[in-house]
């Protein structure tokens, strides 16, 4: 039995597509369903697929509740779970950026020795990025609507994911720097990798499917 953790939301459809290309067959389509667990097979190997919040996928895989999952590079870099990341799937592409209102952005990025207030849900990555530039970041942790923070005086800058930049522009923010190019990765529990041969074969099948897709 192989257990897969698949993220809900915008990554669900492309994740299902890449797994289907690798040969995964689920008994029913998780899209539009309220169920969280779906039975299936991969080349006669029984599979249980869990459809869960994207943030929970690394937790499931690190703790061995799932053998394999799909998670964004942003979550992996922020949380540093002890998992393998053998395949970059090339789906869910976006960027983690620093953005600020135009007036602040015009002055340029803060100089070494400066102190800034930053709103983000990526507290570790934000702190590390500013620290590497000699800037002390006071980080305000938010779980959503981060773009609102400069307008209400919570922070001067934000660190957030950007796909097209539309939400930033709509809220009067300008992109100042890219911290991380993000795409989704196949992640694997290291112990399962060593003890389940079917899992290794599935990972290679996904790798092949990705190569064919991008060829």
């Amino acid at each position: 039995m192989l257990r897969l953790a698949i993220p809900k939301g915008r990554l669900l459809a492309p994740s299902l597509q890449v797994l289907a290309q690798a040969g995964l067959v689920l008994a029913e389509d998780p899209q539009g369903s309220r169920k969280l667990s779906f039975a299936g097979t991969w080349h006669e190997v029984p599979v249980q697929a869990f459809v869960i919040r994207a943030q929970d996928v690394p937790v499931f895989v690190e703790r061995g509740a799932a053998d394999l999952g799909i998670a964004g590079r942003d979550l992996l870099a922020e949380g540093r779970p002890r998992v393998f990341e053998p395949v970059d799937l090339g789906i869910g592409r976006c960027r983690l950026v620093v953005a600020a209102p135009e007036k602040i952005a015009q002055r340029g990025l803060p100089a070494p020795g400066a102190r800034v207030r930053v709103a983000t849900k990526y507290t570790n990555l934000a702190r590390a990025w500013f620290a590497a530039r000699g800037v002390e970041a006071e980080v305000v942790k938010l779980y959503g609507s981060v773009e609102l923070a400069p307008a209400v005086g919570l922070a001067e800058r934000i660190v957030d994911l950007v796909e097209t930049g539309g939400t930033l522009r709509a809220n009067g923010l300008i992109e100042e720097a890219t911290i991380l190019e993000v795409s989704s990765r196949l992640i694997v529990n290291p112990a399962a990798w060593r003890t389940k041969e079917a899992l290794v074969r599935l990972v290679f099948a996904v790798q092949r499917a990705c190569k064919e897709e991008h060829a």
């Binding site: 690190e62 703790r63 290291p190 112990a191 060593r194 389940k196």
Partner: peptide, 11 residues
Amino acid sequence: FEGFARGFGRA
């Protein structure tokens, strides 16, 4: 080296 057992999620 590391040792594992099937069904347990870490070394």
